[in-house]
Design a protein around this nucleic acid. Sequence first.
DNA 1: GCGGGACCTATCGAAAATGACATGTCGAAA
DNA 2: TTTCGACATGTCATTTTCGATAGGTCCCGC
Lengths: 189, 189
Amino acid sequence: MSLRYALLGLLAEEPASGYDLTKKFERVLQRYAWHAQHSQIYPELNRMSDDGLIAVVAEGARGRRTYAITDAGRADLRHWMVNPPDVIVVRNEFVLRLFLLSTLDPTEARRLLELVAAANAKQLDELRANVAAFDAAADPSAGLPLQRLVAEFGLRSFQILAEWAGWAIERIDQTEKMPTTDPDALKPK
Amino acid sequence: MSLRYALLGLLAEEPASGYDLTKKFERVLQRYAWHAQHSQIYPELNRMSDDGLIAVVAEGARGRRTYAITDAGRADLRHWMVNPPDVIVVRNEFVLRLFLLSTLDPTEARRLLELVAAANAKQLDELRANVAAFDAAADPSAGLPLQRLVAEFGLRSFQILAEWAGWAIERIDQTEKMPTTDPDALKPK
DNA sequence: GCGGGACCTATCGAAAATGACATGTCGAAA
DNA sequence: TTTCGACATGTCATTTTCGATAGGTCCCGC
């Protein structure tokens, strides 16, 4: 049901077509929160429309249909938002690789971490640029909007991943220089 | 295919039965990296066995079958580990709620964040206790094992979530005290 | 005027995941 | 001795997701 609420949430912010929503998933949601392809999005929109949670508010060129959330949809979304499950369930192939890092030898683990750190640095830069543009356009006298708070969460997440990867690589290098075959390593204290 | 590699990775560390693996998923993997239930795990183990990636190495009471990874399995796992996809794809209902925070009014958003912060604090305490026990049992003269590095990542992740949630709640409170109807808020600079 | 790229929706078989139901064993405490 | 909880594996209908294929439109630059 999460896909449904992801779509409902995006439509609560502004009306959009299936195409728009697909792009938003690709650009934003996919990387942090939820992944879905258009082949899943279009049928779900039709079902949500049947269920009265959203409605077509405009039809444009190329068969474009713009949907907006209905009152029933808003109520349903709110209910979902304020009732989070108490067991959180995650699927993240990236973190899974980290968990299985110890199945690699230290040299390979190190190489994987460097790959990770590089990919992460690139994403951090992108996000930083987006946030900077957002801040420049924002009214400085107003408080930070909720969206900006979440962006901050993304920023901090990337930052600690970068820091951690660097730290982990350092540790691996230190361990490599201090092999257990070194008799000194066996000295107590 | 991620489930297959999650199982392969756990079996690369030590032989285990379907039951053992299910418990490991529940206790560890589920919260951070990958979720799977026993109804998915048992059939997958049978398929992996058919494919020669794992093999039954012991049979115990109550029909227990202990599996171990084969050389073919190890090769397959290694290949998967060192070839991460370049687009990372995530599914995390919790983060999805954060993204849709702006569909709530500030009061409700604040309440949700407090719920989140409390749940997170509990998880952080649990992990901290586990890590402390691990460190106490570890050989201090050896370098940090890779598993410990990953635990550190978990620790830091929880910590920044806690910090962020606190910060976000503060921001919301400040904004609430400074409504846009306040004429001062409209003054330039 | 035409070629190509962005726009836009759709379907469908296969694979993955869910949640409920099913069935039994072993050991320990009451 | 019986009962209860942990141990242990399985199936299956339904739902969700994937990946590929499909078909068409609008607009811009050459």
